[in-house]
Design a protein around this nucleic acid. Structure first.
Lengths: 222, 222
DNA sequence: CGGTTCGTTGAGATCGGTCAACTCAAGTGG
DNA sequence: CCACTTGAGTTGACCGATCTCAACGAACCG
């Protein structure tokens, strides 16, 4: 066990259980205990049903997480970007696959390390719980998207990516039309038509297929 | 603070932190610390954006959780049945509303009580984490439904309700067609037509609009 | 009996999927 | 330098599933 970074006894813990170690952040933890490595575009990080004994943090790049249906269709559950953790699931085996959308720099940490530290550190455990809740919230928001029109879904998606990548007005989409379609529950043709429609309406202006400039940032568009 | 129910030191906790209290189950916790009361059909339990300072357990009945969109459309995120907990959200305010689909018997617990106990009790904390993951899984399954045909979605929904209510072959649906439609992302007419279609195909036989007998249980139908 | 709510059925309009052709950019190898 | 290939993206024509609007039927309750 490594030396702790900081000592914190927030809130409820001061008078009750006795954490001895506290970690400043999940990023610090990966930096301290993790191992970094690069992967190429399209690389498989883990497949469905494989052992979930590693947790990942993205240093740079974009990762898609999803599953293949019995009929062979691919469902992309979520995209993850730099600074985001993925691969931390409750079961022993992954319920989803993870693949690199673009070339990535990743950091991995044994799942057991993370869990042991969380057991010692209430603040870390709460951060992990917050992470699970964030995923839940995102999944629920995504669920509700299903009933909106295709164009709205595509716009909403692009706005979300732009916001998460730091510039709410302009974004270089790292994923293909097929990735977007499999995420939004559409076909590649419909995504393409939606992009054309958005450009025609003046909502966006595109240079090439991947670079998109947005007229309005996320909140105003809704 | 009440006396503990049982003392457990499972797994990782034996050699590290020092929980003093452990709860047999979330149900026990509600039974010990909660307050029970009945509500009538259609009653509002909480609205969107109201303070999320209570957590609920259903003793009997059915509850719908969802939100109203800006355009007035209602989206039902999930139905909850007897034995299920709801209302436990990460933020200070509810992101969804909750209403009684049928007359219900509920138990409420202050959210702070649950969180304090979870901070003391690793096993309880893990159960709550598992609860969030279950919700996540359900949201993801629901996402996958969006791309299936209307009839499949309705059948899948009825099978799920039947299974959760205890008899995989026959079920009395507690919710209206409108509730089903708002949950499945369909219109009330399409749900009705799907029901008719299922009856015509021999997948189901109905007596009245709410009581449905299923030809095949959940797994075989898929 | 009339009113209300819930559910069903029908006809036309619309949205998105399917199939197919085409453009465009980036390699590759002669 | 050019022909060829490959993958990604766009566009068009057509069709089917679902939505919309509307009327109708059934159960319930005063």
């Amino acid at each position: 066990m490594q030396a702790p970074c900081t000592i914190e006894f927030p809130g409820v813990y001061t008078a009750s259980a006795c954490p001895r170690f506290a970690i400043r952040s999940i990023e610090d933890l990966f930096a301290t205990h993790g191992r970094s490595f690069p992967v190429g575009r399209g690389a498989s990080l883990y497949a469905e049903e494989t052992a979930a004994d590693q947790v990942y943090l993205i240093v740079a790049g974009c990762v898609r997480v999803g599953r293949y249906e019995a009929d062979g269709k691919r469902q992309i559950n979520a995209f993850h970007f730099a600074g985001e953790m993925f691969g931390f699931e409750p079961g022993r085996r992954h319920r989803f696959f993870a693949e690199a959308v673009s070339a990535c720099e990743l950091t991995v940490l044994p799942r057991a390390t993370l869990q042991n530290l969380a057991a010692l550190d209430g603040a870390l455990a709460r951060r992990l719980w917050g992470h699970a809740e964030d995923e839940l919230q995102r999944a629920q928001e995504h669920m509700l998207l299903c009933r909106q029109a295709a164009v709205s879904r595509v716009l909403h998606f692009i706005e979300g990516v732009a916001e998460r990548l730091g510039d709410p007005f302009e974004v270089e989409l790292p994923m293909s039309r097929q990735d977007m379609a499999d995420h939004l529950g559409l076909t590649i043709e419909t995504v393409s038509r939606a992009m054309t429609c958005l450009s025609a309406n003046g909502e966006t202006s595109t240079t090439g297929a991947r670079r998109v400039r947005l007229r309005r940032p996320h909140q105003l568009a809704a």
